Amino acid sequence: MFFFGLGKLFYSIILVINAITILSEDRFLARIGWGRTQQTDPSFGVSYDGSSVKAKTINLISSVRTVMRVPLIVINTMVIVYELILG
């Protein structure tokens, strides 16, 4: 019973990390003003606030996309094999 809950939590975490990783910065994030270019190149008279929640979220998304790309390939492959064998 205890492991059943942890399995669902593990799947949920993997799905959220997958969703963050596949977000396209050009097609989605830049359109809503969450692109990296809007934060690093402020216009004239506007200062960059790196301590805001929005800036920290943008940095988190970028970091997850950079760091988790290769490990997610391995983790997703292991989950697929596990589901195919043990269902």
Rank of each mutant, 00 (worst) to 15 (best):
L72D: 00
I13A: 05
V53C: 09
R27G: 07
D41C: 11
L15C: 06
R65S: 04
S62Y: 10
A30C: 09
P42M: 08
D26M: 09
S63R: 13
L84R: 12
T21G: 01
I58F: 02
V64D: 01
N59R: 12
S52D: 15
V64K: 02
F2S: 05
D41L: 12
N18M: 00
A30K: 11
M78V: 12
M68Q: 03
S52G: 15
M68I: 00
V79A: 06
L23R: 05
M78A: 10
Q39V: 11
P42C: 12
I73F: 05
S52V: 15
S63D: 15
Q39L: 11
S43R: 15
I13Q: 05
T66Y: 13
Y48G: 07
F4G: 09
E25R: 15
G35T: 10
R31G: 15
I58H: 04
G45H: 14
W34K: 09
T40C: 08
I32H: 07
I85S: 01
G33P: 14
T57C: 04
G5L: 13
W34N: 05
D49P: 11
Y11C: 04
V70Y: 02
V81T: 03
I80R: 01
F3C: 09
I13L: 07
Q39R: 12
L9D: 05
G87I: 09
A19M: 11
L23F: 03
M1Q: 10
T40N: 09
K8A: 07
M68T: 04
V74F: 00
I22A: 02
I20A: 00
V74C: 03
W34Y: 09
D26P: 15
V46L: 15
L60M: 13
L6C: 08
A30I: 06
M1D: 12
Y48P: 07
R27M: 10
M78H: 07
T57F: 04
N18R: 01
T66D: 13
V81H: 00
I58M: 03
S47V: 14
S24I: 06
I17L: 05
F44P: 11
R27N: 11
I17R: 01
M78P: 07
L9Q: 07
S12Y: 07
F10K: 04
L86P: 02
E83C: 03
I20V: 02
S62P: 06
T40V: 12
F44M: 09
S51G: 09
Y48N: 10
I61R: 08
M68H: 01
V64W: 01
N76D: 13
G50R: 12
N18F: 03
T66E: 13
R27P: 07
I14S: 05
V74I: 05
Q39G: 08
